[in-house]
């Protein structure tokens, strides 16, 4: 006999303990939505039934925590994030190294590295401004509601970043907002958010993303420029007669013709190495995002 929705959600969480953290978050959110809607509906239609009785008849139709958990585990087993589907399973190291060009996760990671620069700046500005304003406004009457709005915006941005990470890096992230009790007064809600480790980890992530986003962007632009320069040297020297290095006025250095294939090969290899590195960075970043943005 389950006496409250919270008890059901606790049991469901226990049943899902071996599942992916993002699945747990989705399952709790779905169950809470359904049970609350069904309970409100049933209480309206049959006000004479006690809440316990009504809840248990709803759970009878919805499924016990164990049944619901197995439904999620089953679907989760069959559904994998979009980019992790086409993971080329090549045998040799050579094929795996050059196979990076056909790996959607590597291209996704490259795109993420570019986007992270913009989102990093935005997150950092939002987190610092929001936090400092919340602290400064605390002496005013609207200070606490402002802090609540800031914390809620952090939760929203964490969910958004999760969708970006799943879409581009192929790491499973929550698809539903984090489960929160709906019947709390705003002050209790603020207290709950402020006491929640998840909120502070999300803020920390927003700060870290600024540094990481900048590093990713600089790496991307630098390696792309160097690789393209190497590949372009033969064209620039032969077609446009442009020297590669100019030491001082009138003293130019040209690479010898025999080195052209080596330069082009060098540029191509450098970019390939970077693509492999980007794929690795993407996976590491995905794990970090999951650890910081998804609750246990």
């Amino acid at each position: 006999m389950i006496n409250s929705i919270e008890e059901y959600l606790d049991q469901l969480k226990t049943e899902l303990k071996d599942s992916d953290a993002a699945t747990v978050q989705d399952a709790l959110s779905d169950a809470e939505d359904h049970l609350r809607a069904a309970l409100a509906n049933l209480r309206e239609k049959q006000p004479e039934r006690s809440e316990d009785e009504a809840l248990n008849s709803i759970i009878e139709q919805y499924g016990s925590p164990a049944e619901t958990a197995s439904a999620y585990a089953e679907v989760e087993r069959r559904t994998v994030p979009q980019l992790s589907r086409d993971n080329p399973k090549t045998e040799s190291v050579f094929a795996r190294f050059f196979g990076v060009y056909a790996d959607a996760r590597a291209w996704g990671a490259l795109l993420y590295m570019l986007i992270a620069f913009v989102t990093g700046i935005f997150y950092f500005t939002w987190a610092v401004t929001g936090f400092l304003l919340s602290v400064s406004f605390a002496i005013f009457i609207f200070g606490l509601p402002f802090a609540l709005l800031f914390f809620l915006s952090v939760r929203g941005l964490a969910l958004l970043e999760g969708r970006l990470v799943e879409g581009l890096l192929g790491v499973r992230m929550p698809r539903r907002p984090l489960f929160t009790q709906q019947n709390l007064k705003w002050f209790e809600r603020l207290k709950e958010l402020a006491m929640d480790r998840h909120t502070w980890f999300s803020i920390l992530y927003m700060l870290i993303q600024f540094v990481l986003g900048t590093i990713y962007f600089v790496l991307f632009v630098t390696v792309l420029s160097i690789s393209l320069s190497f590949i372009a040297i033969p064209v620039l020297q032969e077609l446009f007669n442009l020297p590669t290095i100019q030491i001082r006025e009138g003293v130019h250095y040209f690479f010898p013709t025999w080195s052209y294939p080596l330069l082009v090969l060098g540029g191509f290899l450098l970019w390939t190495i970077f693509m492999n590195l980007a794929r690795g960075i993407g996976q590491l970043h995905g794990r970090m995002a999951k650890a910081m943005l998804v609750t246990d």
Binding site: D26, A27, D30, A31, D33, H34, A37, A38, N41, Q61, Y62, G63, E67, T68, A71, Y72, E74, V75, E76
Partner: peptide, 26 residues
């Protein structure tokens, strides 16, 4: 929304409900 869909499916299946509503969401 999810609850409405679940109710509709229950109405279609009549007495012999073939699935738990919780299995619908995933």
């Amino acid at each position: 929304y999810g609850y409405q869909i679940a109710k509709l499916l229950d109405d279609y299946s009549g007495e012999a409900s073939f699935m738990k509503q919780g299995a619908l969401y995933p």
